[in-house]
Amino acid sequence: MSLFLYQLRGELWKLFARKRTYIGYGVFLSVELLVLLLLHLPRTQRFLRRMIENSGGLFDEYFSGLTVALMMMAFTLFMLGGLYLALVAGDIVAKEVEDGTMRMTLCRPVSRIRVLAVKYVVCVIYTFSLVFFVGLSALILGLLVRGTGGLFPMIPGVNLLAFYDFWPGLGRYLAALPCFALSMLTFSTFAFQLSCWNVKPAAATISAITVFFVDWILHEMPYFESYRSWMMTTHMNTWMNVFREPLQWSRIVEDYAILLGLDATFLIVGAVVFASRDFKS
């Protein structure tokens, strides 16, 4: 185990020594600021006021730091999260194969599955760190700009109506972060699996994004409503159920069981492909 941690440390050095990783965090912060700005435009404010007041809440009470943070996090991760996770997870194996560093690693007396396991743990860490970074930075920004107040989870396209006071709302918000990260992990795992094939890193990244966007578009089309349970994005959206009152545990557990099953399937396929291929310059 200690050797695994030693190897993991090396992989984390590789990831976090790259400027690109930090540029990503910077971009996320910029998008959050942009969303924050957009939420304060007069027309947006009028729309939000109507939504909150029509639902029975007070705008000044519920257009708070928590509500703004949730909107910033959801929009930012929806717009950019998938792209960045696909970039990192799609690169993590394929780029090393392309650069020749994977062959150098595989000169060592280590099994290919072990190398993949270390890299996958890095993917998991990156996915969680990204979601937590976006979630917590959105929370800090939201609280700084709008202050404390109740939470009204306004997520477009989701039939969700709930009002929370500050502390219960904060608890739900913080509980949503690991759930959101677990949902995004399916995206990372899918990109990671593609990265294990004999493809260019860009091909793995683009394929992952394409599959998930097609899945999402099909999920949004009313014609395919009866097939939604077969779509990944249906189960990935389950993080929003954390905001429902009462909490629907059975639904959350079922969705995450399906997602973890998918993750395991993607991992096994990736590992089999990676373990059986030839590495040649």
């Binding site: 200690s2 030693y6 190897q7 090396g10 992989e11 050095w13 020594a17 690693t105 060592r108 280590v110």
Partner: peptide
């Protein structure tokens, strides 16, 4: 140095 540490970690400490 870091490169050597990373590559050799796949053999031993």
């Amino acid at each position: 140095w870091r490169n050597l540490e990373i590559y050799t970690s796949y053999s031993a400490r």
